[in-house]
Nucleic acid binder design. Structure first.
Length: 199
DNA sequence: TTAACGATGAGC
DNA sequence: CTCATCGTTAAG
Protein backbone atom coordinates (compact mmCIF):
# COMPACT_ATOMS: atom_id res chain seq x y z
CA UNK A 1 0.00 0.00 0.00
CA UNK A 2 1.60 3.19 -1.21
CA UNK A 3 0.60 5.39 1.71
CA UNK A 4 2.64 3.20 4.05
CA UNK A 5 5.78 3.34 1.94
CA UNK A 6 7.43 6.08 3.96
CA UNK A 7 7.07 4.17 7.22
CA UNK A 8 9.04 1.27 5.73
CA UNK A 9 12.02 3.43 4.91
CA UNK A 10 15.42 1.84 5.55
CA UNK A 11 17.30 3.39 8.45
CA UNK A 12 20.78 4.83 8.66
CA UNK A 13 22.34 1.59 9.82
CA UNK A 14 21.52 -0.06 6.49
CA UNK A 15 23.90 2.29 4.67
CA UNK A 16 26.75 2.29 7.20
CA UNK A 17 28.48 -0.78 5.75
CA UNK A 18 30.90 -1.40 2.93
CA UNK A 19 29.57 -0.83 -0.57
CA UNK A 20 29.71 -4.50 -1.62
CA UNK A 21 27.45 -5.52 1.28
CA UNK A 22 25.03 -2.67 0.65
CA UNK A 23 24.97 -3.39 -3.10
CA UNK A 24 23.84 -6.96 -2.39
CA UNK A 25 21.34 -5.90 0.23
CA UNK A 26 19.77 -3.27 -2.04
CA UNK A 27 18.40 -5.90 -4.42
CA UNK A 28 14.64 -6.22 -3.95
CA UNK A 29 14.34 -2.87 -2.16
CA UNK A 30 12.08 -0.08 -3.46
CA UNK A 31 13.65 3.13 -4.73
CA UNK A 32 11.00 5.82 -4.32
CA UNK A 33 10.82 9.46 -5.36
CA UNK A 34 8.18 11.71 -3.84
CA UNK A 35 6.63 13.93 -6.51
CA UNK A 36 3.74 16.37 -6.49
CA UNK A 37 1.78 13.72 -8.40
CA UNK A 38 2.59 10.94 -5.92
CA UNK A 39 5.26 8.31 -5.37
CA UNK A 40 7.15 6.98 -8.38
CA UNK A 41 9.82 4.30 -8.54
CA UNK A 42 10.33 0.57 -8.37
CA UNK A 43 12.27 -2.47 -7.20
CA UNK A 44 16.05 -2.44 -7.44
CA UNK A 45 17.29 -5.39 -9.54
CA UNK A 46 20.83 -4.37 -10.57
CA UNK A 47 23.59 -2.59 -8.61
CA UNK A 48 27.34 -2.07 -8.75
CA UNK A 49 29.65 -1.47 -5.78
CA UNK A 50 32.47 1.07 -5.96
CA UNK A 51 34.81 0.53 -3.04
CA UNK A 52 36.78 3.75 -2.92
CA UNK A 53 40.53 4.33 -2.45
CA UNK A 54 41.79 0.91 -3.60
CA UNK A 55 39.23 0.48 -6.38
CA UNK A 56 40.70 1.89 -9.60
CA UNK A 57 37.27 1.86 -11.25
CA UNK A 58 35.84 4.25 -8.63
CA UNK A 59 35.58 8.01 -8.97
CA UNK A 60 37.15 8.15 -5.50
CA UNK A 61 40.16 6.00 -6.45
CA UNK A 62 43.25 6.98 -4.51
CA UNK A 63 41.08 9.33 -2.42
CA UNK A 64 40.54 11.60 -5.40
CA UNK A 65 38.17 14.34 -4.28
CA UNK A 66 36.70 16.88 -6.68
CA UNK A 67 33.62 19.05 -6.92
CA UNK A 68 31.86 16.25 -8.83
CA UNK A 69 32.46 13.36 -6.45
CA UNK A 70 32.59 15.03 -3.04
CA UNK A 71 29.22 13.46 -2.19
CA UNK A 72 31.02 10.12 -1.95
CA UNK A 73 32.77 11.43 1.16
CA UNK A 74 29.48 12.03 2.97
CA UNK A 75 28.17 9.66 5.60
CA UNK A 76 26.31 6.59 4.30
CA UNK A 77 22.72 7.24 3.25
CA UNK A 78 23.26 10.18 0.88
CA UNK A 79 22.67 10.28 -2.86
CA UNK A 80 25.60 10.80 -5.24
CA UNK A 81 24.36 11.98 -8.63
CA UNK A 82 26.80 12.71 -11.46
CA UNK A 83 26.51 13.92 -15.04
CA UNK A 84 28.14 11.77 -17.72
CA UNK A 85 28.67 11.66 -21.50
CA UNK A 86 27.41 15.20 -21.88
CA UNK A 87 23.77 14.18 -21.48
CA UNK A 88 23.04 11.59 -18.78
CA UNK A 89 22.70 11.42 -15.01
CA UNK A 90 23.50 8.42 -12.82
CA UNK A 91 22.34 7.76 -9.25
CA UNK A 92 24.54 6.25 -6.55
CA UNK A 93 23.89 5.47 -2.91
CA UNK A 94 26.75 6.56 -0.66
CA UNK A 95 27.73 3.94 1.93
CA UNK A 96 29.93 3.58 4.99
CA UNK A 97 31.36 6.21 7.35
CA UNK A 98 32.13 9.79 6.45
CA UNK A 99 35.39 10.10 4.50
CA UNK A 100 35.33 6.44 3.47
CA UNK A 101 34.26 7.28 -0.10
CA UNK A 102 32.24 4.27 -1.24
CA UNK A 103 29.03 4.14 -3.24
CA UNK A 104 26.60 1.82 -5.01
CA UNK A 105 25.51 2.64 -8.56
CA UNK A 106 21.84 1.81 -9.15
CA UNK A 107 21.83 0.28 -12.65
CA UNK A 108 18.24 -0.94 -13.03
CA UNK A 109 14.87 -1.10 -11.30
CA UNK A 110 11.57 -2.82 -12.11
CA UNK A 111 8.86 -0.16 -12.47
CA UNK A 112 6.28 -0.43 -9.65
CA UNK A 113 4.86 2.98 -8.72
CA UNK A 114 3.73 5.87 -10.90
CA UNK A 115 4.46 4.01 -14.12
CA UNK A 116 2.29 6.39 -16.15
CA UNK A 117 4.28 9.36 -14.84
CA UNK A 118 7.60 7.68 -15.58
CA UNK A 119 6.51 6.79 -19.10
CA UNK A 120 5.75 10.45 -19.66
CA UNK A 121 9.17 11.48 -18.34
CA UNK A 122 10.86 9.21 -20.88
CA UNK A 123 9.25 8.61 -24.23
CA UNK A 124 9.63 4.83 -24.48
CA UNK A 125 7.99 1.49 -23.64
CA UNK A 126 7.80 -0.23 -20.26
CA UNK A 127 10.65 -2.67 -20.82
CA UNK A 128 13.11 0.11 -21.71
CA UNK A 129 11.87 2.53 -19.07
CA UNK A 130 14.30 1.89 -16.20
CA UNK A 131 16.72 -0.82 -17.42
CA UNK A 132 19.91 1.24 -17.21
CA UNK A 133 21.48 3.75 -14.82
CA UNK A 134 20.75 6.83 -16.94
CA UNK A 135 17.36 5.50 -18.03
CA UNK A 136 16.07 5.20 -14.49
CA UNK A 137 17.30 8.70 -13.70
CA UNK A 138 15.34 9.92 -16.71
CA UNK A 139 12.23 8.05 -15.63
CA UNK A 140 12.49 9.40 -12.09
CA UNK A 141 13.61 12.82 -13.28
CA UNK A 142 16.70 12.74 -11.11
CA UNK A 143 19.31 15.38 -11.89
CA UNK A 144 22.10 17.20 -10.05
CA UNK A 145 19.60 18.82 -7.69
CA UNK A 146 19.43 15.39 -6.04
CA UNK A 147 23.16 15.22 -5.40
CA UNK A 148 23.83 14.85 -1.63
CA UNK A 149 20.11 14.48 -0.84
CA UNK A 150 19.62 12.21 2.18
CA UNK A 151 17.79 8.95 1.58
CA UNK A 152 16.33 9.36 5.05
CA UNK A 153 14.49 12.41 3.68
CA UNK A 154 11.04 12.64 2.14
CA UNK A 155 12.24 13.63 -1.35
CA UNK A 156 13.97 10.38 -2.22
CA UNK A 157 14.18 7.21 -0.16
CA UNK A 158 14.49 3.42 -0.17
CA UNK A 159 12.10 1.00 1.55
CA UNK A 160 12.16 -2.64 2.58
CA UNK A 161 10.62 -3.69 -0.74
CA UNK A 162 9.94 -7.28 -1.73
CA UNK A 163 11.30 -10.73 -1.12
CA UNK A 164 13.46 -11.61 -4.10
CA UNK A 165 12.08 -14.39 -6.27
CA UNK A 166 14.77 -16.48 -7.93
CA UNK A 167 18.54 -16.29 -7.82
CA UNK A 168 20.93 -13.43 -7.10
CA UNK A 169 24.25 -13.48 -9.00
CA UNK A 170 27.31 -11.31 -9.32
CA UNK A 171 29.31 -10.45 -12.45
CA UNK A 172 32.05 -8.07 -13.51
CA UNK A 173 31.11 -4.40 -13.58
CA UNK A 174 30.07 -2.75 -16.84
CA UNK A 175 32.04 -0.17 -18.85
CA UNK A 176 35.10 0.20 -16.66
CA UNK A 177 37.69 -0.77 -19.27
CA UNK A 178 39.88 2.07 -18.00
CA UNK A 179 40.40 0.20 -14.71
CA UNK A 180 43.35 -2.08 -14.03
CA UNK A 181 43.65 -4.19 -10.88
CA UNK A 182 39.99 -4.07 -9.88
CA UNK A 183 38.53 -4.32 -13.39
CA UNK A 184 37.29 -7.91 -13.01
CA UNK A 185 35.97 -7.76 -9.44
CA UNK A 186 32.52 -9.43 -9.31
CA UNK A 187 30.83 -6.39 -7.85
CA UNK A 188 27.81 -6.12 -10.11
CA UNK A 189 24.80 -7.72 -8.44
CA UNK A 190 21.64 -8.76 -10.26
CA UNK A 191 18.30 -10.45 -9.70
CA UNK A 192 18.90 -13.08 -12.32
CA UNK A 193 15.39 -13.67 -13.63
CA UNK A 194 14.41 -10.00 -13.87
CA UNK A 195 13.27 -8.76 -17.28
CA UNK A 196 14.44 -5.25 -16.41
CA UNK A 197 18.23 -5.69 -16.29
CA UNK A 198 20.41 -3.27 -18.27
CA UNK A 199 21.42 -4.24 -21.79
C1' DT B 1 43.53 27.56 -21.14
C1' DT B 2 42.89 23.43 -23.28
C1' DA B 3 42.27 18.67 -24.94
C1' DA B 4 40.80 14.18 -24.01
C1' DC B 5 37.49 11.44 -22.12
C1' DG B 6 33.49 9.18 -19.89
C1' DA B 7 30.18 4.01 -13.94
C1' DT B 8 25.41 5.68 -21.29
C1' DG B 9 21.86 5.15 -24.72
C1' DA B 10 20.01 5.01 -29.27
C1' DG B 11 20.31 3.77 -33.90
C1' DC B 12 21.89 0.92 -37.56
C1' DC C 1 29.76 -0.61 -34.46
C1' DT C 2 29.13 4.43 -34.35
C1' DC C 3 28.01 8.68 -32.59
C1' DA C 4 25.62 12.27 -29.95
C1' DT C 5 27.08 15.84 -26.58
C1' DC C 6 29.39 18.64 -22.93
C1' DG C 7 30.90 18.93 -18.02
C1' DT C 8 34.85 17.38 -15.56
C1' DT C 9 39.49 16.45 -15.13
C1' DA C 10 44.37 16.86 -15.12
C1' DA C 11 47.96 18.56 -17.59
C1' DG C 12 50.36 22.64 -19.29
Amino acid sequence: MISSLESERLDKGFYMKDAVSVAKNLLGKYLIKNTDKGFIGGMIVETEAYMGPQDDAAHSYNLRKTKRNEAMYEEGGAAYVYFIYGMHYCLNIVTNKRDIPQAVLIRAIEPRFGIDIMLKNRNTDLINLTNGPAKLCGALNIDLSYNKVSLLSDRLFITQGEEIKGDVTSTKRINIEYAKGYKDKPWRFIVKNSKFLSK
